[in-house]
C-alpha cells in the first residue's frame, strides 16, 4: 500500500512543479493537508491558471468525506496530543484498515496513518526533484499521468453503479462548461449532477445493494424508487 502511495506522491510532486509551483510546495502541502486527491485537485486548478481560492474550496469539498469517516471510526485515537496527531492521519487507507481489522483496529489505524504521513511528503519531494530537472514534462507524457492516477484511485467507486451514473453525468457537465467558465468552476458545476441522483436510481440502501445488481438479482424485492434492477438497466440503456 505504501508503494502505491509513494508512486502517487512522486507523480503528485512532478505534476506540481510542472504546473509552475515551487519544489517545496507539494511537500509542505502534502504534510499539512495530507489528503492526496484534494491536493491533486488544488494543483490541477492552480496549474491550469485557476484561482487558488477555487482550488481550496474544491479541495475542501473533496475532503468533506473525512467527516463521515470520523463518525464511522472506532475509538482508536487516544487522548491529548496523540488524539491531535491521530485526527491528522485520518485518511482513506487508515480508516479502511481500522474498520476492517476490528480486533487490532488502533494498531492498524496508526501504522497505515503514520506510513502515509511519512511516504506521501517524501514521495512528493522526490517527484518535485525529478520534475524540476525535466525542461518539458509534456514531452515525457507526464500530463497523461495525472488523469490516470485519479482515475485509478476512483475506479473502485466507479464500479459501483450508484456513484457511476452521477459521476458520468458530472463529467459531461464539466466538459460542456470547460470552454465557457474559468478553470475550477466546471469542476464545481459537475456537482449539479447530484441533483439528478433521484432520477438516476437514487443512492441505494448501501454500496452492496447496488454492487449486486446482476440479472440474477431480479427476484430481489425492490426497496428503491426504481421498479427493480432489470427495469433499471433498461432505462439506463434507453438514456444512453
Amino acid at each position: 500500500m505504501c508503494l502505491a502511495v509513494g508512486v502517487t506522491s512522486v507523480s503528485y510532486g512532478a505534476v506540481s512543479v510542472a504546473s509552475g509551483l515551487p519544489f517545496w510546495f507539494p511537500v509542505v502541502m502534502g504534510t499539512l493537508v495530507l489528503a492526496g486527491s484534494s491536493e491533486f485537485l488544488f494543483v490541477g486548478i492552480v496549474g491550469a491558471g485557476g484561482s487558488p481560492v477555487a482550488g481550496a474550496l474544491a479541495g475542501l469539498l473533496v475532503n468533506a468525506r473525512h467527516l463521515p469517516y470520523g463518525l464511522a471510526l472506532p475509538d482508536v485515537l487516544g487522548r491529548g496530543w496523540r488524539r491531535a496527531l491521530g485526527v491528522h492521519v485520518m485518511n482513506d487507507e487508515s480508516v479502511v484498515f481500522a474498520l476492517t481489522r476490528k480486533e487490532n483496529a488502533a494498531r492498524s489505524y496508526w501504522t497505515s496513518g503514520i506510513g502515509v504521513l511519512v511516504c506521501w511528503p517524501l514521495g512528493a519531494l522526490l517527484g518535485a526533484a525529478l520534475g524540476s530537472t525535466v525542461s518539458d514534462p509534456n514531452a515525457f507524457g507526464l500530463d497523461a499521468m495525472f488523469p490516470v492516477v485519479i482515475l485509478a484511485l476512483i475506479l473502485p467507486s466507479l464500479r459501483d453503479r450508484v456513484a457511476r451514473r452521477p459521476a458520468l453525468l458530472g463529467a459531461v457537465i464539466a466538459l460542456v462548461c470547460a470552454p465557457l467558465l474559468p478553470t475550477g468552476l466546471p469542476l464545481l458545476a459537475s456537482l449539479a449532477a447530484l441533483a439528478a441522483v433521484p432520477l438516476l436510481g437514487g443512492l441505494g440502501t448501501s454500496p452492496s445493494a447496488s454492487a449486486d445488481a446482476s440479472p440474477s438479482a431480479d427476484a430481489r424485492p425492490s426497496a428503491g424508487p426504481s421498479a427493480g434492477t432489470s427495469g433499471d438497466a433498461e432505462s439506463e440503456r434507453g438514456r444512453a
Partner: peptide
C-alpha cells in the same frame, strides 16, 4: 458525500 467526491474527481479526470 461519497458520491459527491466521486462526481468531483471524475469531472477532474475528464477535464484534465
Amino acid at each position: 458525500l461519497d458520491v459527491a467526491a466521486v462526481v468531483l474527481l471524475t469531472a477532474l479526470v475528464a477535464v484534465t
